[in-house]
Design a protein around this nucleic acid. Structure first.
Ligand SMILES: [Mn+2]
Ligand SMILES: [Mn+2]
Ligand SMILES: [Zn+2]
Ligand SMILES: [Zn+2]
Lengths: 146, 146
DNA sequence: TATTATATGAGAATTATTCTCATTTGTCAA
DNA sequence: TTGACAAATGAGAATAATTCTCATATAATA
């Protein structure tokens, strides 16, 4: 079962790469698996440290470049951050974010109504919309209790 | 008229500082004036370079610290960015952003309907809302033409 | 299996941000 | 007005985040 899931992920990923002209390297497979299905919003450093235990030979440089390459080819998104490190988002479904302004935690939420948000008419011609999202800045429970 | 506007701005700013326990320094006045009424979304470096021509004695460190202090005390906002440098927003009115994913340009837009966006019920108790905004990621006209 | 374009890893370079500390200055009370 | 003093400033160093360079390795293909 574990094995089958893994095999399935591999196949999905290989397909992704083929379609985008990316070589299927062990490093990329590792990084992809670390992110697939996650609703985290990690930094490159976070991904690196996460996989480092199991794969100590993958360099930070490769992790970072791979994440950027994945973003470039639509395998994941670069999302808004409030300075500090760049944040990646492996969840490509249309969704919105709750963002704690103190600790930087980002939580997904779904909302059909918000998905239908349209760019104002006056900007429609000028700008080609890539994506859109509601971002709610909050102080999370943990940060409130400090 | 120019003079009166300037005097008025000074008074508003002095009031701001008094209410927040900030000392009114020439550096802070300069930085405040450079931002007041602007709908830009500058980085600290941009603000620094802007005022440097006229005020070559103000250090980058002071500009940066002042912007952070202003953000801390509600004189301006730190807004979402997509990596690179932190972006500030002197426009405190409730508004939304169109953000070019190529050049980083950010344009304000107003929308009554979007202002009424509520945090989903299930999160209301857990998170204290600080602000909320629609962010529309686009490719701007200029970037499209490249 | 040989070719080749692409990817990787190490280290250096660059950019952005924060820290430290000696000095200066705004504020306030006398 | 004039100190006293807490806060602010500026210079430089330190740290964090990102990108670049280039020699080597490797996936894809024919
Ligand atoms: Mn997300
Ligand atoms: Mn704005
Ligand atoms: Zn938090
Ligand atoms: Zn643009």
């Amino acid at each position: 079962m574990q094995k089958e899931t893994s095999t399935y992920l591999n196949e999905v990923f290989i397909q992704h790469c083929r379609e985008r002209g990316l070589k299927v390297t062990p490093q990329r497979i590792t990084i992809y698996k670390a992110l697939a299905g996650s609703t985290d919003h990690p930094t490159a450093d976070f991904v690196y440290r996460n996989i480092h235990k199991e794969h100590p030979n993958i360099s930070f440089e490769t992790v970072n470049r791979t994440l950027l390459k994945f973003a470039e080819t639509g395998i994941l998104d670069v999302i808004e951050s409030f300075s500090g490190a760049r944040r990646f988002d492996p969840n490509l479904d249309s969704h919105h974010h709750i963002h704690c302004v103190q600790c930087g935690m980002i939580v997904d939420f779904k909302d059909e109504q918000f998905n239908n948000i349209q760019i104002p008419k006056q900007f429609k011609r000028e700008y080609k919309v890539v994506s859109k999202r509601v971002v709610i800045n909050v102080i999370c429970e943990l940060c409130q209790s400090k």
